[in-house]
Amino acid sequence: MGEYITVEPGVKLYVEDLNPGSGKTIVFIHGWPLNHKQFEYQFDVLPALGFRVIGIDWRGFGNSDKPYTGYDFDRLADDLRAVFEQKQLQNVVLAGHSAGGAISIRYMARHQGHGVSKLVLIAAAAPTSFTPETAERYLAVNSGDRPNLIRHVTDSFFFRYATEPFREWFISLGLQAAGWSTAAMIRLLRDTNLANDLAAINVPTLIMHGIHDQVVPFAMAQEQHARIPQSRLVPFQYSGHGLFWEEREEFNRLIAEFAG
Rank of each mutant, 00 (worst) to 15 (best):
G2E: 15
G2V: 15
E3I: 03
Y4H: 13
I5M: 05
E8A: 13
P9S: 11
G10F: 10
Y14L: 00
E16S: 15
G21R: 12
K24E: 02
V27R: 00
V27E: 03
H30C: 03
H30W: 08
W32D: 07
L34W: 13
N35I: 04
N35F: 12
K37Q: 08
Q38F: 12
Q38Y: 12
F39W: 12
Y41N: 07
F43L: 06
D44V: 03
R52W: 09
R59M: 01
G60K: 11
G62L: 00
G62I: 03
N63V: 11
N63I: 10
N63G: 15
S64D: 06
D65H: 13
P67D: 08
P67C: 06
D72Q: 00
D72W: 02
D74S: 14
L76N: 02
D78E: 08
D78V: 09
D78W: 09
D79E: 02
L80P: 05
R81Y: 13
V83F: 00
V83Y: 01
Q86F: 01
Q88P: 04
Q88K: 15
V92L: 01
L94A: 00
A95G: 01
G96P: 02
R106F: 04
Q112G: 06
G113N: 00
H114W: 14
G115A: 02
G115E: 00
V116D: 01
K118I: 03
V120G: 03
V120W: 01
I122M: 11
A124S: 15
A124M: 12
A125M: 07
A125H: 09
A126D: 07
A126E: 04
P127R: 01
T128F: 10
F130Q: 07
A135I: 08
E136Y: 12
Y138S: 14
Y138W: 15
Y138V: 11
V141D: 13
S143E: 15
L149V: 06
L149T: 06
H152D: 12
V153T: 07
V153H: 09
T154C: 13
T154H: 10
D155H: 10
F158D: 01
R160Q: 15
T163S: 15
P165S: 01
F166L: 02
R167V: 09
E168P: 07
W169M: 11
W169E: 08
I171E: 00
I171P: 03
S172Y: 01
G174Q: 04
G174W: 07
G174E: 00
G174H: 05
L175P: 00
G179S: 04
S181D: 08
S181A: 07
A184L: 10
M185L: 14
D191W: 01
T192F: 04
A195L: 14
A195Y: 13
N196H: 12
D197Y: 11
D197M: 07
L198I: 04
A199D: 11
A200V: 03
A200H: 09
A200G: 05
N202M: 08
V203Q: 00
P204W: 02
H209N: 08
G210K: 11
I211V: 11
I211P: 06
D213V: 02
V215H: 03
V216D: 10
F218S: 02
A219H: 05
M220H: 15
Q224D: 13
H225P: 08
H225L: 08
A226W: 08
P229M: 10
P229T: 14
P235H: 03
Q237S: 14
Q237F: 14
Y238V: 12
G240I: 06
G240F: 02
H241K: 04
F244H: 14
W245Q: 05
N252D: 02
R253A: 12
I255G: 03
A256Y: 09
G260S: 15
